[in-house]
Design a binder for these strands. Structure first.
Lengths: 224, 224
DNA sequence: CTAGGATTCAAACAGTCGTTTGAATCACTC
DNA sequence: GAGTGATTCAAACGACTGTTTGAATCCTAG
């Protein structure tokens, strides 16, 4: 008994899936890194698919639980009045960023993994939908409460933009450098307020201003 | 001679890479779909890696060319004065969205592929960096010109947020439904103005307001 | 018509993949 | 200490991977 074979597989799989992606990581690589026998992964998990699901669930359920708890707390503190836009954003964004800053290794691994699975095959994507779909719905509804005058169509798109900005930042924030030579951007305590301020401004802009047509009707040709 | 073997391989590869990802698509699947011999891909391209690079380059160079041309046109029209934030956004965003609406099949394929490669292995990611890094730098500098008072750190992050919102929208806009049952969001002519308005508001918000600490110092515990 | 380079083809190479098997070993109860 | 179920192990299964080979075929210039 290798001192928690099941957990060692999970840890190694998380790290390797994050580094190389799901399809590109073989079970032999995982079991070798974990120091366990190849057949152990089929004994403890039934297949590679289930292993991935468990890897995701371990972290995602934790992050989502924190999100809901923060939102509930803000709702109690608001005593019936609608929760501020800023607080909804914070409840949604803070847990993941907090994990990233407090446990950099685990956090980076997890966010890298989310970014990958988000884009990989159908199976990883379906797992993501299952794990994160409900929580997005909750926050979408909370945002509608906080912005009652925003048309539903605009709200849906803006929620979409928010998720994109968040996911991209979590995925690439650490290693991407916009301005070459300036070094990679740092995920420090200033990032979360910046992101919240950016997004809240976007959510609050009048939807009418969005219906002006872009200035250039003529656009350059694309060859098919 | 199969009426353009080289091009048929490129087309099939683009479609299959977009649908299943790079690592999960075998050369046999590609050549079978293209109706050509397996060895043809090594004859016309030297390896699977080069094939991917060519697939990306064909579309990316077109989109990036259009971006630069639009930016140049707006600069000429501004006659020396700084280009509006809205116009910079439009020059950056419009070409991809235009491709998506004008050639839905090709556009969807390409944006799906970008989304995937963005997150897949190291090789796809390096190709993406090579193809899109320079263009991001150009627009980053244009944004700095348009917002001279915005600190460089804030600008870099906001550029990051912008790219995230764009990429996520291109990748998932067509099939994601935030509110279950309401049907998928539609990429119509209203989307681009909405995205531009959302992002411009975020870019214009005073950076000072971003330095207020989030309200909740205490955060729930994550187990490592 | 023919020589010769460009292209296509079936076949094989040397691996790796996820999964299964059946025996060996462990921990623990009676 | 024997028996029992949980766990680990080496080995193999059949299928699939990117790449290479060398002969067959096509197209075109002389």
């Amino acid at each position: 008994m290798g001192a928690g074979t099941k957990k060692r597989i999970l840890d190694a799989a998380e790290r390797l899936f994050a580094d190389r992606g799901y399809a590109s990581t073989s079970l032999r690589t995982i079991t070798k890194a974990a120091g366990v026998n190849l057949a152990a992964v089929h004994y403890h998990y039934h297949s590679k698919d289930v292993l991935l699901d468990q890897v995701i669930d371990r972290r995602a359920s934790e992050v989502n639980r924190m999100r809901l708890e923060m939102l509930d707390r803000f709702r109690r503190e608001a005593r019936g009045r609608p929760v501020t836009l800023e607080k909804i954003m914070e409840a949604f964004l803070a847990p993941a960023f907090h994990m990233l800053r407090t446990y950099p290794k685990i956090g980076q691994r997890f966010t890298r993994l989310m970014g990958r699975l988000h884009a990989e095959g159908d199976l990883p994507h379906q797992i993501m939908r299952r794990r994160f779909g409900p929580i997005v719905k909750v926050f979408h509804d909370a945002l509608q409460e906080s912005l009652p005058k925003l048309p539903p169509g605009d709200l849906a798109w803006r929620t979409h933009f928010m998720i994109g900005a968040m996911a991209h930042t979590l995925r690439w924030g650490q290693q991407m450098e916009i301005t070459p030579g300036a070094g990679p951007l740092l995920i420090d305590e200033g990032l979360l307020p910046r992101l919240i301020a950016f997004l809240c401004a976007g959510f609050r802009v009048a939807p009418e201003s969005a219906h002006r047509r872009p200035s250039s009707q003529k656009i350059l040709k694309v060859k098919p």
